Simulated scan of single mutants.
Amino acid sequence: MAKVIVYSKTWCPFCVRAKALLTQKSVDFEEINIGAEPEKRDEMIKLSGQHTVPQIFINEHHVGGCDELLAAEAQGELDRLLNT
């Protein structure tokens, strides 16, 4: 199974939605809460080039945020990413 990392914040509705989709698909993921671990924010920016959450990585591939994750699911791309 793929290694999935989600950079998020607790109060973020987009983070909640992205994590709900992954949970619905029975995907195990590592959550890095940059609200609780602010030093991880710089790491997220360096890896993604983005300042917003969530930022989602599958096997070190930067998927993007919630909108990109949902689009990948709608296009059938998410399953491919999760199974490589």
Rank of each mutant, 00 (worst) to 15 (best):
M1I: 11
M1Q: 03
M1C: 00
M1N: 04
M1E: 01
A2G: 06
K3N: 15
K3L: 02
K3D: 15
K3T: 13
I5D: 04
V6A: 04
V6D: 15
Y7A: 15
S8K: 10
S8Y: 11
S8V: 09
S8W: 07
K9I: 11
T10D: 02
T10L: 05
C12N: 07
C12A: 08
C12V: 07
C12D: 01
P13K: 14
C15T: 01
C15E: 11
V16C: 03
A20R: 15
L21I: 10
L22Y: 09
L22F: 12
Q24V: 12
K25Y: 13
V27R: 02
F29N: 12
E31I: 10
I32Q: 06
I32H: 06
I32T: 04
N33S: 11
N33H: 01
N33P: 04
I34P: 04
I34L: 04
G35Y: 11
E37Y: 13
E37R: 09
K40Q: 15
K40R: 05
K40E: 15
R41A: 10
D42S: 14
D42T: 13
D42F: 15
D42Q: 10
E43C: 07
M44L: 06
M44G: 01
I45P: 00
I45Q: 05
I45M: 13
I45T: 15
I45N: 06
K46N: 11
K46F: 08
K46E: 13
S48H: 09
G49F: 08
V53Y: 01
V53I: 11
V53T: 08
Q55L: 07
I56C: 03
I56F: 11
I56R: 06
I56P: 00
F57H: 06
F57W: 06
F57G: 12
F57K: 01
F57C: 11
N59K: 08
N59S: 06
H61F: 06
H61C: 03
H62Y: 07
H62S: 10
V63G: 04
V63Q: 02
V63N: 01
G64C: 12
G64F: 02
G65N: 08
C66P: 02
E68K: 01
E68A: 02
L69P: 00
L70C: 05
A71Y: 05
A71N: 07
A71V: 03
A72P: 01
E73R: 00
E73A: 01
A74V: 02
Q75Y: 03
E77G: 00
E77P: 00
L78T: 11
L78S: 10
L78H: 09
D79R: 12
R80P: 00
R80I: 09
L81H: 09
N83Y: 05
N83C: 02
T84Q: 07
